[in-house]
Design a protein around this nucleic acid. Structure first.
Lengths: 184, 184
DNA sequence: GAAAAAAGTCAACATGACTGACGTAAATTC
DNA sequence: GAATTTACGTCAGTCATGTTGACTTTTTTC
């Protein structure tokens, strides 16, 4: 199960010997290697929190919700829907479980009392920190292997992979969360 | 729906003014921005094929299966299970649909007739090329924005994000597929 | 006071995962 | 040559997470 290709060389596809290794960037060799690496990398990346989630009876949806609530305390339900791009019915169930089990607090807005503003509880914050810790560990390891400048390289690449029209709001989202984190 | 944070500044979290922008790499600022960027980038990246999948009545699972079959013609069902890390019951339905609708061919192995070796049909190859094209376009655009060296930087970073014990087999998988592609 | 917005809820359904059990054919082992 | 293992498929049931559509309540806005 750990080996991704225990396969013998496929019967067809003659597999001629020596060839230029992929990733050397010569023209016409395509970007399929990056497509696949992105797939495998993300799979392991989102797999990390599963260890923490399983004993709690939570799934990845809970992780995502708690993460963004924790990063943006006081956010509205609508904001969360826009970020996650799911329906409110989908969010509803997950959010209710997080509230019921005391990870998220949902208070009516002070200025606009229709709104439910979402806050992590202490328990929620602690859990969110666990998620961040385990995923940061992986990223930190990867960056360390890549040498100096890798952090900024990765940042730029990932940002450039996002739909152009969403980049500004993602940037704002991250920056505001970062500000709030610092001023606690 | 396009704006990720139409939110007013959250009611709580006083949002003190000026702060160092994230990503400048000073100690202790965490890697949460990269966590989030990875999330958004992957979301848009896997969203691309949806436009192609929807009219066919296929889902993302079909994309993944067809992609790897196309890249590794003649692969066994077991190999596919190892790559995708799903159960054979899960794979079964998706694969059957792909075979039924003429995107994948499943022939008994010549040397070992228990095996079902999987090949893309012409139709399957064409579809797989569409997926690759749309995802490559996004990646190529991102790399172009990042300047020279970005391709190799991204490659190294993504590889380093993969579980250490799986890297060798992922590398082999990519290299063998690349070889086969060149020698057609 | 009417309209619009924010949120919640009920119901039904789709997709893609899962476990567990069982069957069959072919290859491998003893 | 019989027993075991392997590769694959399938039936049946479940779960997590997403979807649409309709409807309600509360509150704000015009």
């Amino acid at each position: 199960m750990t080996d991704v290709n225990s396969a013998q060389t496929p019967a067809l596809a003659p597999s001629a010997g020596h060839a230029t290794p992929p990733g050397t960037g010569e023209a016409g060799d395509g970007l399929v290697d990056l497509i696949e690496l992105f797939f495998f990398a993300y799979r392991d990346f989102v797999g990390d929190p599963d260890q923490i989630l399983a004993p709690l009876g939570f799934g990845r949806a809970h992780h995502r919700v708690l993460h963004f609530v924790n990063r943006n305390p006081g956010m509205r339900v609508t904001d969360l829907l826009d970020i996650l791009r799911i329906t409110k019915q989908s969010l509803g169930r997950v959010l209710r479980e997080l509230v019921d089990e005391g990870f998220v607090d949902s208070r009516a807005g002070a200025s606009d009392r229709r709104q439910r503003l979402l806050y992590p509880t202490e328990k929620g914050e602690a859990l969110a920190r666990e998620f961040i810790a385990i995923q940061s560990r992986r990223i930190a390891g990867a960056l360390a292997e890549c040498g100096p400048g890798a952090r900024e390289d990765a940042r730029r690449f990932l940002m450039a992979m996002i739909d152009r029209e969403d980049r500004a709001s993602v940037e704002r989202l991250i920056q505001r969360a970062e500000r709030n984190r610092r001023t606690r």
